[in-house]
Design a protein around this nucleic acid. Structure first.
Lengths: 111, 111
DNA sequence: CGAACGTTTCGTTGTTCATCGAAATGATTC
DNA sequence: GAATCATTTCGATGAACAACGAAACGTTCG
């Protein structure tokens, strides 16, 4: 992760709605994920994210916009499954962001 | 650090100019800081930050604005020394931010 | 005191962006 | 193929914000 990607990720996390989405995916994907018959972990859909984040009263188009912005920042990954859009946290980017912040704190960054 | 302070810090880091300031203070305070006669580490002034970030010789009101925004987010600390405004990185906040991001990645956050 | 210097505040301007409602897209089911 | 459902795109609106120049402020020094 370089200076630019760090900045984009931080900017994406700077919006309350998007941070709320990340928080939901964090707890959802890591702890409460439903298990399908195949045994795979089922990620929440865009609609489910919308329900949890807005209390089902906010417009889907806004959430869709935020989801794709988070995807562009590398913070989540999206996958089409039929009509649904499954969302899951990209843990790698968050860990890289943490590492970059730690390097900034100690003056070890070389950008 | 809670959800709100994390968001504010990320938002502050999301602007390219402010991230540039943080990057400068990171290398400056931790590696290239000048040593005063007293032995203390001398932090750069707002003017010096402006020179490095903008390349301009003149003090810029824009930089002043960004510095105070970074201070409000807890990412830097400012101290008046005569006419000068000394700036230094608040390493604690960056480390807390890193910790929070790590917890988000592993689903261990409880907000 | 008053001039010089570094910094901050003020007012403005243009841009970016979050949010919204409606229409369009794409996949599934009947 | 028509109907239905989930999601995305489009166009518009209003708010937040970065950037700028000028003026104001506070400190230091002659």
């Amino acid at each position: 992760m370089n200076n630019e990607t760090f900045g984009k990720a931080c900017k994406a996390l700077g919006d309350p709605t998007r941070l709320q989405i990340i928080g939901f995916l964090s707890t959802c994907c890591c702890a409460q994920a439903t298990i399908r018959e195949s045994g795979d972990v089922e990620s929440p859909t865009a609609g489910q994210v919308c329900c949890h984040v807005t209390g089902a009263e906010k417009i889907n188009s806004t959430i869709s916009h935020h989801l794709h912005e988070l995807e562009a920042a590398g913070l989540i990954r999206m996958e089409k499954r039929g009509t649904a859009a499954l969302c899951r946290l990209n843990q790698e980017t968050l860990l890289e962001l943490a590492s970059y912040a730690t390097r900034l704190a100690s003056g070890e960054n070389h950008d």
